[in-house]
Design a protein around this nucleic acid. Structure first.
Length: 740
DNA sequence: AGGTTAACTATTTTT
DNA sequence: TAGTTAACCT
């Protein structure tokens, strides 16, 4: 038997063997869909002699793409590198990088993140005299995003008698982006559709290239993505979509569950494979998940089953208040990890980010190391955004958005008033800000004008030197010449030191990109170009766009550290843990107020979220909540989540207040019996010169007491109590002392 | 220009 | 509670 089909169940085999024609794989949680996908790709190459260049696989996250790539390579070897495995957005960037000039943009276009989007919206609202209190910038942003996901232009909206203000803001917003040669995340999809529609020869090229198409998490596609897939698959119709309508949790971002539900309608000759066997969880956990999801209407009735054993009841604990709840979780972890589990076997899942605080405090008190997923991402940090703005401005001096961001950073005595004045002139003269500096009649006072001129000369000086350097060297030059590094150095605070470290990290990322990643990208694209033949400017533009799409920066070592994981349920999709705690299981929090009031689709999405949360657990699941807790600074009481009542009592072991305990929490021996077959636990023991190790208690001159939660070379991550949170500090910093 | 204080609001966020 | 933003003061 073919090695690639080894250990596959009949449905999985069928999914792998059905290489031709449309195929829908309805894959329940934990049913091994990634395994099916990777083996299918390998099978196409090894058995069907399909060239890797003719295979496309699309995922939603970079992480998923990376993992899939690794697994395909493991199965098939080096040739696996040549398969396009990427996210929708990276795929679009690559397509647009070749041909976006055909639809009017410059090939050196830059990508805009959501913070940038919001600031554009704010200026547009100012120009149009719209009151942000009546309609918030965020409202406009989401309306625009929705429109784009539906592939609707401002003109299309006006036909539908949409909110007049939305149309005006959308129109203006789009003009500004175009003028600055910038595109937002949604544009990447929209413009790719436009490109395909207006230039059939481009579409034909990609249709011929991608003869075998795979889409993961198909239930999360929005209409623009759907359109891209449809266009690409039109010719060969070898399209394999994998997904689970019960795990559709991003409809508020435009994901359209109908896409997967109507696949058979779109492709009447489609074969459908249902994967119901779960390889992740004990049956008890699946029973609870099945119980909950059954309450949703209009779904394909799937029932997950497992042969991993019955397992324990779900531990349901209702606490007196939020602190007691957090303490309960911390206690359980301390207890269980003594001999059965490692810290990294635990995950704490919550509905909203703000819930993490209470847990963090309890963990800090009890010295439980943790990693918090989400929150401020690396690329949203000010210093990184500033550096990227400099680099973008150097590549494209007409980029007003970048110009405004850094013209007075570090302080050059150019204030808001002067920038406003220059902007006024630039708008009237239809010039970029940079170009307006040279105009004699721009009305800027001589003293200020000189400052602008100095700034411009500096940028152009850097621009003229770029080709003499590698990207990493050039970044160094930029940081020095602009005075940015000096500004941080002079600050002399720990804060500034860590910013400098971050910039250094950016630099090493750039080196890695230039020397390794770029060639892989080019190889995948079958490009004749080679990295070392590209100009530094071109490489830099590619790097900047690549980084904009990169949000998860956690390295493999960091992910494997022995720490408890704290994250939202949304962030947990696709992951699994031996022991899972779902906390704050209360009406108003989970499901959220709004969903509870609105009912209908909103409530069903919350229920799917509960389903996702429950199915993350392998061996043991805890569900907790609190009778009362602090919310928005006031104490409020919440009822138990309606979802807990949907789980049959026989699957629950209720403890805590207001619930009768049928029996004590399971014993340690039971916990041991329920362990997964021993996994190779990779506890990374970092050997460092510094004497710091996780768990050490420290005293910091300004942050007070804290606990070391990670050590990476000279850098020690220390968790301080709120409001400081986790800080990365030099282990040798004089402000830091070990506490006994 | 730039820093400080008072007032306001409150999901989730793969890219 | 806490993060953000607008108004206010130096």
């Amino acid at each position: 038997m073919n090695q690639l089909l080894h250990n596959m169940n009949p449905q999985q085999k069928e999914a792998i063997l059905t290489t031709e024609g449309p195929l829908l794989v309805m894959a329940g949680a934990g049913s091994g869909k990634t395994r099916v996908l990777t083996h299918r790709i390998a099978y196409l190459m090894s058995e069907k002699q399909v060239s890797p260049y003719n295979i496309l696989a699309i995922t939603f996250t970079n992480k998923a793409a990376r993992e899939m790539k690794e697994r395909v390579e493991k199965l098939i070897g080096e040739r696996g590198k040549d398969v396009w495995i990427s996210t929708f957005h990276s795929m679009c960037v690559r397509i647009l990088r070749r041909d976006i000039d055909l639809i009017g943009y410059d090939l050196n276009f830059g990508i805009l993140d959501d913070a940038d989007q919001l600031s554009v919206i704010k200026t547009v609202m100012e120009d149009l005299n719209l009151d942000p209190k009546r309609q918030s910038p965020k409202y406009f942003l989401s309306q625009i995003s929705n429109a784009k996901n539906e592939l609707k232009s401002p003109r299309d909206l006006s036909k539908e008698f949409e909110n007049e203000d939305v149309i005006r803001v959308y129109e203006r917003y789009q003009q500004i982006l175009f003028k600055n040669n910038r595109v937002d995340f949604d544009d990447l999809l929209v413009l790719t559709v436009h490109l395909f529609e207006k230039h059939p020869e481009v579409l034909t090229f990609y249709q011929n290239k991608f003869q075998y198409i795979h889409i993961d998490e198909y239930q999360d596609t929005n209409n623009a993505q759907y359109q891209i897939v449809s266009l690409l698959a039109q010719k060969f119709r070898n399209i394999c979509v994998v997904g689970d309508s019960d795990q559709s949790i991003y409809s508020w971002r435009g994901a359209n569950i109908e896409n997967i539900l109507s696949f058979e309608h779109d492709y009447p000759d489609a074969k459908v494979v249902l994967l119901e066997q779960n390889y992740r969880s004990k049956q008890m956990i699946l029973n609870a998940a099945n119980d909950v999801i059954q309450n949703n209407s209009g779904r394909l009735d799937k029932r997950l089953w497992s042969d991993r054993g019955e397992g324990n009841q779900i531990e349901y604990y209702r606490a007196l208040d939020g602190d007691v709840e957090a303490t309960y979780i911390a206690d359980k972890i301390s207890y269980m990890r003594r001999d059965s589990y490692d810290y990294h076997d635990f995950a704490i899942l919550y509905r909203t980010n703000s819930q993490s605080r209470a847990i963090e405090q309890a963990f800090l008190r009890q010295n439980i190391p943790y990693r918090l997923i989400g929150g401020q991402s690396y690329f949203k940090r000010k210093e990184i955004k500033d550096l990227m703005a400099y680099l973008r401005l150097i590549c494209n001096p007409d980029d007003d958005l970048s110009f405004k961001r850094i013209v007075n950073e570090p302080k050059r005595g150019i204030g808001a008033a002067s920038i406003e004045k220059l902007t006024q002139f630039a708008n009237e003269a239809e010039l970029s800000l940079m170009a307006s500096i040279d105009e004699v009649d721009n009305g800027i006072a001589r003293a200020t004008l000189n400052k602008f001129i100095d700034f411009k000369q500096m940028i152009y000086m850097l621009r003229s030197q770029i080709e003499a350097y590698s990207i990493a060297e050039f970044i160094d030059l930029v940081l020095r010449q602009t005075g940015y590094l000096e500004m941080l150095e002079n600050e002399n605070t720990i804060e500034a030191d860590s910013r400098i470290d971050n910039l250094g990290e950016f630099q090493s990322m750039a080196t890695q990109f230039e020397e390794v990643d770029l060639n892989e990208i080019l190889a995948e694209e079958e490009s004749e170009e080679r990295a070392d033949e590209l100009s530094t400017m071109t490489k830099l533009v590619i790097l900047l766009n690549d980084l904009m799409l990169q949000t998860d920066t956690e390295t493999e070592e960091e992910a494997n550290e022995s720490k408890v994981t704290l994250m939202t349920i949304h962030a947990a999709k696709g992951l699994e843990f031996p022991v899972v705690f779902i906390c704050g299981f209360e009406d108003g929090i989970f499901p959220l107020h709004s969903a509870l009031e609105q009912g209908g689709d909103e409530l069903e999405e919350e229920r799917r979220l509960a389903y996702v949360a429950i199915t993350r657990a392998e061996d043991i699941l805890f569900i907790t909540n609190a009778q009362s807790r602090y919310q928005y600074g006031r104490r409020s009481a919440n009822r138990e989540s309606m979802f807990i009542h949907e789980i049959s009592d026989k699957y629950l072991n209720k403890t805590g207040i207001e619930t009768r305990s049928k029996r004590p929490s399971f014993t340690l021996q039971e916990a041991l019996d329920n362990r997964s077959p021993k996994k190779t636990i990779q506890t990374i023991t970092l050997t460092t010169d510094s004497s710091w190790k996780s768990g050490d208690k420290v005293l910091h001159d300004s942050f007070g007491e804290g606990v070391v939660v990670g050590v990476k070379g000279e850098i020690v991550s220390i968790a301080f109590s709120s409001p400081h949170g986790i800080k990365k500090l030099m282990g040798s910093h004089p402000a830091l002392k070990k506490r006994g």
